[in-house]
Design a binder for these strands. Structure first.
Lengths: 398, 398
DNA sequence: CTTCTTTTATTGACGGCGGAAAATAAGCCA
DNA sequence: TGGCTTATTTTCCGCCGTCAATAAAAGAAG
C-alpha cells in the first residue's frame, strides 16, 4: 500500500480561506478581485488567504494569459492545481464496486470496477480495500499523494459518524464503515449516502455550481433525490431525505415494495417498467436493456410503460419544485438511457403539476457515466479534506 | 401617532451578540454558562456580549430565584425583558385585517380586527394605517416604544425587497408594501408571506424552538406549508415554497382551481369539503361551521368528507416528511376546529405513506388562535429588528 | 465561626482575522 | 517617458472571542 501520508491537512484555518478555496474550485480560474467579490471579502483578505494556499501547492497562478481587457494592470487569475492531490471514490452497489481515482478538481483519472461476490461487511471491506489498493498503485505511479477515500452507499448513512445505519441493498445495519475502511486502507475515509454524494459532486463541480437551491433526481433501479437548500445538502433530521421514490403519484397505481401504491418508484423504477411491459405486452423482457430496445422498435405497450414512467417522474419533480422552489432540477441516472422515451412526458407532467412560479424552475437532464456515482464519493472525500479543520459552522437557530 | 422613535437600533453589532440574544429569547431564562454552551461560545464572550444588552434594557437578570442546585455559586439567569419594546403584527386577508400588539417576547398584548372593504393597495394601506394607529395609541398608554411593524400577506412575497410580487387573494402585483407602509406609519416595516411568518413565530416562540428542520402545515381555506431547513425558513429560489396545497394526492380526484386534479387543497380545503358534503349528502351547507356541525351530528356523508380531507392532508405531510426528513411537523390553522373529525385519518395516512425513518417524524397539532397569523407577522418584525445590522450572513456555497 | 469546596461570573491580556486606505505593480496609450 | 487604469500587496488597526486567572456566592466540613 504505497507510502502512508500521515494526515496531510489542508492549510485553511479560517472560514474565509476555506470559502475562497471552494469558490476557486467551483468557478474555475478567477482573479483575486473576482474571488473577493464572490466571497464577499475584501481583496486584501483574499491575497492573504491565497498565499499559503499557493505555497502549499493547492492553488496556482494561471499562466495561460487569457484575453486581456486592454486597460489597467493585467489580472492574475488563480486556479486550483488539480494535480496537487488525488482522491479515491468508491460506490458500493448490491453486486458491484466501482472505484475512481480523481484529482483535486474531481476529474477522473482512473476508473475500475469489480463484481461484489458477497455483501457481508467483511467481504465488502476486503473488496473495497483491494480496489483502493489498485488505485493507490496508480496514484503512486503518478507520484501524487492520495489524501482521502470517499465511499458511497445507498440507504441511511450517518456521514458525521461514518456509519451505515441501514442499507436495504446490502442488508447492513449500523456498520461503522468509515472506521473499518480507515483501518484497512490507512486513508481518511468519508462515508455518505450515494445520492447525496452525487449531489455534492453536482454542487461543486456540476450543474449545481453557484446555486443555493437545487435538486438532483436520479432515475434507475430506484428513483432518488438529493436536495440542496440554503447552499447545503439536506440530510434530514434522521439522516434520510429526498425519498422522492416513495412519493405517491397515484393511489390506485401498482403496489410498491414499500407497502404503498403508486409510488414514483413503483411506476418508474427499472423493475416496475419491465414488469409493466410484461403485463401489457406479454413479451418476456428480461431487463431494462431489452425493455428499451422493445420500445425503440416501436412496441406500443413498451412505449406506454415509459410514458407512464415519465409522467410519474415529472409529477415527482413537480412535487419537489412546489415544496422547495429550487432554482434547478438536474435529472440523471442510468435510467436516462431511455431518455428519449420519456423526456417529453417528464416535461409535460412537470409543467402541468408545477404550481405558480415553480415552473420557473429549470429542469435539466444530464447523462450519467457509470463512474459518476463513484466520482460523487470522491467529491465527498474532497469536501471532508477541505473542511477537516472547519467543522464549527453549525448555526442552529436563525 | 404617539412619539416617533427615530430608528432605535438593536445593540448587537457582532454575530455572537445576535446569536446570544436569540438563544435567550427562545429558550427562556438561561444562565450565562448555559447560553455559552448552546451558542457554542466561551462564557467570557457571553458575559461581554450580555452587558450592553442589559444596559440597553433588552435583557434583564432574572430575580425569581429558581430551585437552587445546592452547591456552588448560585446561577444568575438572564432573560429577555419582554416589556422593553413592542411590535405590531398585521395579517391581511381578502376580507379582514387582523392586528396585534406584542411585546419583545412576541406575547400578544392587544388584538384587533377590522373588515376590509376594498382590496386596492391604497385602501388596504389606509386600513392598515388606521389599525396600526389604534395599536400605537395603546402602546403609548403603556409607555413602551413600538419598534417595528410586520405585515403578513398570502402569496408571493419578496421579504428582502418588501414587495408583494403577486397575491391572488388581494389581486395585487408588485406592490412595494414595505415602503408604502413605512411612509404612512413611520415604523420600520417587514413584509412577508403569511405562512412563512407563522413559521418564524413557531421557530422562535413555538413548537419549532431548538429544531433545525421542521415544517408547519396550515389547514383552512387553503392548505399551506412553511419549511425550516438547516435552521432557516425556506423561501425558494423564486420566492415561493411550501406549496403543499397543490401536491397531487389523487390524479383522479376533484379538479382544483390550479387546473390539476386531486391537489391536497382540492380535497381538504374548506371550500372543497363543503362542496363534497353538498354533493354526497344533498344538504346545502353554507360554510365550514355548518359542515362541521353536520359532521358532529353524525352525518355519514359529512364525516366521510372530513375523513377524505384528513387522508389527503396526511399524505401531503408524508410527502414533506419523505422529501425533507424534518424532525417535527406542526399542523395548525383555522381548519383545526374540525380536528377531531380527521386527526385519526391524518395520522393513519401519514404513517402509511411515510417511508423508512420518515415516520420517526413527530407530528403535532396545535390550535391556532385567530390572532396567530398576525403574531407571526410581529415575529418577522422582531426578527428584522434584531437582525437590522446583521445582514451579512450569506454563505453561498458549501 | 472559620475554612474549604464547588460552581458561576468577570476580568484583562492576547492572538488573529478581516477591513480600510495607501502604496505599489503592470500593463496600455499618447 | 509620463499619464491613466486596474490589480495586487502592504501596512496598520479595530475588535471579537479565547485563555487563564480571579472574584463571587453560596453550602459543607470541621
Amino acid at each position: 500500500m504505497s507510502s502512508i501520508h500521515p494526515a496531510e491537512t489542508f492549510p485553511a484555518n479560517t472560514p474565509a480561506a476555506s470559502q475562497i478555496f471552494t469558490t476557486v474550485l467551483s468557478h474555475g480560474p478567477l482573479t483575486r478581485l473576482e474571488v473577493a467579490r464572490r466571497a464577499g471579502l475584501s481583496p486584501a483578505a483574499v491575497t492573504k488567504a491565497v498565499r499559503p494556499l499557493i505555497e502549499a501547492g493547492y492553488l496556482v497562478e494561471d499562466v495561460d494569459e487569457p484575453a486581456r481587457p486592454a486597460l489597467g494592470r493585467p489580472a492574475n487569475p488563480v486556479r486550483v492545481d488539480g494535480g496537487r492531490a488525488l482522491f479515491i471514490g468508491v460506490k458500493v452497489t448490491g453486486d458491484e464496486i466501482i472505484g475512481v481515482l480523481t484529482d483535486l478538481c474531481c476529474r477522473i483519472r482512473v476508473a475500475r470496477h469489480t463484481p461484489l461476490p458477497d455483501r457481508e461487511p467483511k467481504a465488502v471491506l476486503t473488496s473495497v480495500a483491494e480496489l483502493t489498493g489498485e488505485l493507490l498503485t496508480e496514484a503512486a505511479d503518478l507520484g501524487v499523494p492520495v489524501l482521502g477515500l470517499g465511499i458511497a452507499v445507498s440507504g441511511d448513512v450517518d456521514r458525521g459518524a461514518g456509519v451505515v445505519r441501514y442499507s436495504p441493498f446490502l442488508e447492513w445495519r449500523d456498520v461503522p464503515l468509515a472506521e473499518l475502511a480507515a483501518a484497512t486502507t490507512g486513508l481518511p475515509v468519508t462515508v455518505d449516502n450515494d445520492v447525496r454524494a452525487l449531489t455534492v459532486a453536482e454542487q461543486w463541480f456540476g450543474a449545481g455550481v453557484g446555486l443555493s437551491d437545487f435538486a438532483v433526481v436520479t432515475v434507475g433501479a430506484g428513483i432518488g433525490c438529493g436536495l440542496v437548500v440554503h447552499g447545503r445538502v439536506v440530510a434530514g433530521a434522521h439522516g434520510v431525505a429526498g425519498e422522492i421514490g416513495h412519493v405517491t403519484v397515484d393511489p390506485a397505481g401498482p403496489r410498491c415494495h414499500c407497502g404503498n401504491r403508486g409510488c414514483v418508484e413503483a411506476i418508474a423504477g427499472d423493475a416496475a417498467i419491465v414488469r409493466r411491459i410484461r403485463e401489457t405486452t406479454g413479451v418476456e423482457v428480461a431487463d431494462t436493456a431489452e425493455a428499451v430496445a422493445l420500445a425503440h422498435q416501436g412496441n406500443a405497450g413498451a412505449r406506454e410503460a415509459y410514458a407512464r414512467a415519465g409522467e410519474a417522474i415529472g409529477r415527482g419533480i413537480a412535487t419537489v419544485a412546489n415544496l422547495l422552489g429550487p432554482e434547478r432540477v438536474i435529472i440523471s441516472g442510468e435510467g436516462l438511457a431511455a431518455h428519449d422515451l420519456f423526456a417529453e412526458q417528464i416535461r409535460d407532467a412537470f409543467a402541468a403539476a408545477a404550481f405558480g412560479s415553480a415552473d420557473r424552475c429549470d429542469v435539466q437532464t444530464r447523462p450519467l457515466p457509470f463512474e459518476e456515482w463513484a466520482r460523487g464519493a470522491a467529491a465527498t472525500a474532497i469536501q471532508s479534506f477541505i473542511r477537516a479543520d472547519d467543522q464549527q459552522h453549525q448555526h442552529q437557530n436563525r
